[in-house]
Amino acid sequence: MTHLKIEGMSCQHCVAAVNEALAEVNGVERVLKVDLDSGIAEIEGDADTQALLAAVREEGYEATVA
């Protein structure tokens, strides 16, 4: 499982955009959650961490490994 810290989300639309972007990355089995309050995303699967970070950044948010 991969945990990412997402910065810049301010609403549920942001959460949905990040969730969708992460779900489209090769190797993601399931996005367990993207939490607006904590800014933490939990992802199951064997996706490349750099690809996950890039997907979030392409949506306009900052991401780091939590």
Rank of each mutant, 00 (worst) to 15 (best):
A21T: 05
L36V: 14
V15C: 11
A66I: 14
Y61H: 01
A41V: 08
D48P: 01
A51F: 10
H3Y: 13
D35H: 07
H3W: 12
C14Q: 07
Y61K: 06
C14H: 06
M1E: 15
I6F: 00
G8Q: 01
A55Y: 14
T49D: 03
C11Y: 12
E58A: 14
Q12C: 02
Q12D: 10
M1N: 15
A47E: 00
A21E: 01
A51T: 04
V65W: 10
G8Y: 08
A54K: 10
A51P: 03
I40L: 10
A21M: 01
M9T: 01
V31D: 04
L32R: 09
D48I: 07
D35G: 03
M9C: 09
G60H: 00
E62C: 06
D37P: 15
L53M: 09
E59M: 07
L53S: 04
A21N: 03
M9E: 01
I6Q: 04
E59F: 02
G60M: 03
L52P: 03
A41Y: 05
V15A: 08
L36W: 11
A51I: 08
L53E: 05
A63T: 02
I6C: 02
V28G: 00
R57E: 12
E44H: 14
G60W: 03
D46R: 15
V56R: 05
Q50A: 09
